[in-house]
Simulated scan of single mutants.
Amino acid sequence: MPIYESNPYQKLLLHNLKALGLDVQEGGSGVFSILRSVICNLGADAIHLHWLTPFLIGNSKIRTIAKSILTILQLIILQLLKIKIVWTVHNLKNHENRFTNIERFFSRIVAKRADAILAHSESAKRDIRNAFDVDDQEKIAIIPHGNYLGYYKNTLTKEESRSRLNLSPHNFTFLYFGKIRDYKGVQELIDSFIKLNKSDAKLIIAGKPNNNEISNSITYKARQNKNILLVLQLIPEDDIQLFMNAADVAVLPYRDVLTSGTLMLGMSFRKPIIAPRLGCIPDVLKNGGCFFYDPEDADGLFRAMKLSMTSKHHLQNMGDRNFILAQKNSWSLIARSIFKIYQNHLSDYTPSN
């Protein structure tokens, strides 16, 4: 908990945990959702937290402090009831950078209260330890992010996808895919693409902006170049293949990141990646499937994009390498690893089948 219906990460994890015989119930994101989930599921052995933002962040400083205190009190009650607490850390702070000092303070308390903390990579584990003052290294387990193989339709060829998007088969096509927030660096991506000044290059930006200000900013920038295709909306699941298969390379121009589902999505569609050396990305892509750049270098993204265009003969091989890596991160294996963590903290628990 909290459960986000649109997030395949949780759907796939839930499905595979249930396949192991676990009785897994979904929890909400309201102020008292943690305690309510336990009351509605008497006999619960553990609660598994994911994103803390809805439990900690309010629309004012006072509300943020109040929500955070109520959340900690609920966790204390859980501990008194001998209910174990597991926390998968997807990010170190909320995406909008609201009340981050307060959030960091209470996130550290959650980390201390948690019986187990899950990180998606070695670098994420290190960042979590430093951010939340976790002294016990054994408390943090590394569980990789699962792949999306077989979840999304993938029947269209590159030619069919480009035809549907009115793109030439000869264009070199960059793709940014996913929700658009400030920290994801889409504005810098547009600037770098314009700087390339390549008439045979296309940039697709497909995803829903987080607010009107971001939408207006991106739309204004994109007007400067007719080779930028904007699809500023939530992309239906069946249409994701359209954009992924049309692209030569997927770009993750993030200013800040701990872990990334979009990275695994691109790998699941055999895409080579352009990304900064940040967070989990260097840990995941150790096989030469990425054009890395230094996030502190103002021209780093531009140079990585330029390099990808001169490396066309390597792209297929890079995408294949990423696909092979993605195959290793099956949800069945991930669920089994998480189940073992549950078992380690619930020594008397056995699944129902």
Score class of each variant (00 low, 15 high):
193 F>N: 06
247 A>N: 03
118 L>Q: 07
320 D>T: 08
94 N>R: 06
340 K>E: 14
39 I>P: 07
129 R>V: 04
74 Q>M: 08
177 F>H: 03
317 N>E: 10
102 I>Q: 07
143 I>Q: 02
171 N>V: 02
317 N>L: 05
75 L>F: 06
74 Q>D: 09
322 N>D: 08
245 N>M: 07
301 L>S: 06
306 K>F: 07
116 A>M: 12
342 Y>S: 02
87 W>M: 11
190 I>T: 01
155 T>R: 11
240 I>S: 02
287 N>H: 12
282 P>Q: 05
202 K>A: 03
274 I>L: 00
262 T>C: 10
270 R>D: 05
304 A>M: 06
228 I>F: 01
52 L>N: 09
297 D>I: 12
6 S>G: 05
152 Y>N: 07
283 D>P: 06
65 I>H: 06
112 K>F: 14
50 H>M: 12
1 M>H: 11
165 L>D: 04
231 V>C: 11
9 Y>R: 08
31 V>Y: 07
130 N>E: 15
233 Q>K: 15
304 A>P: 00
300 G>D: 08
296 E>L: 13
50 H>L: 11
162 R>Q: 07
308 S>K: 01
7 N>C: 03
28 G>P: 02
324 I>Y: 08
302 F>D: 05
295 P>N: 12
212 N>D: 15
63 R>Q: 15
17 L>P: 05
252 L>W: 02
123 S>D: 03
71 T>E: 04
316 Q>P: 00
